[in-house]
Amino acid sequence: MASFFVRRLLLALAVLFAVSFGTFVFFATKFYPTCSGAGPPLVGSVPNAASAYFHWLRNVPSGGITRDPCGTDIGAQTWQSLGHTAALLGATALIVIVLSLVLGVIAAARAGSLLDLALRAFSYIAWAVPAFIVALVLQSVFNWAGNRSGFRPFATDGWPGQCALISGAFLKDCGVPGAPTPHAGTGLHYAVSLIRHLTLPALALALAFVGAHSRYLRSSLLVALNAPYTTTARAKGLPEHTVLLRHALRNSLATFSSVLLLDFGAIFGAALVVDYVFGLNGLGLLFLSDIQTASINPYAVQLLLTVTAALVIAAALLSEVIVAWLDPRTRLR
């Protein structure tokens, strides 16, 4: 197990190295920061993009990559956006896991029923509707209902206490992009405000994946329910709900979690859209605001993309490790 893990980890690091080199060359040879000074050297001042990359790489352990050649701190915004995206993904994961488990188990227990059919139709539609349409519809429905009734249980845009990094789009006018706003609250108030602001985006992001993953769980549960060990459990006289939840579901959870982690890249891509529609100042909005400016800062984009790739690669690695841990046969590959 240990050697398998080390081998996979080294491979993942090699892939991360290669992609960060690729994006660096891509951006650094095309866009130049407008100043020079402290920090890693510019492409122009060293022989080629490759050596500029190795200068950049040398600054990774010390955290020097969080400053661009102008000396501007690009790290603070990146870490903050990472936090926002992590909160969004966490809330989404919670919704996806709870709803998929409940819907998947119900669909498997009542396979072939009208309810199963309805869930199947839901999952097809949820999976096919692009995240931006789901987000737009949720946002406009809650806006419309809020305007009609005056009752606004959830915020329809923004992160508590912050203006969006990109002005315009679907967001209420807020002033300076990225600037703090006074009414964030502290302590419990902040937590409540956070939940109010995260509910709709997380729901919009979760819907498609609830559709897909409840179907995966349903089919893997149906396989488990026909397995010999389930027959044994039934023969022992266990009640059906015990058979379903303690015997079949336990065995299906392994594939469920690994498939969910494998979907991380897709969830992350969809989070970009939801971030944009709801103005959450996560990695997605930061990325879009970074590339929308006329003078793209390659070091800011590079830091952002490296963090993104590291997350996706780590999720894939974690998924493989979970599978290998649960099913030793796959370690041989």
Partner: peptide
């Protein structure tokens, strides 16, 4: 190629 989300 798949290390980044395809949209990114």
């Amino acid at each position: 190629v798949t290390a980044y989300p395809a949209v990114v």
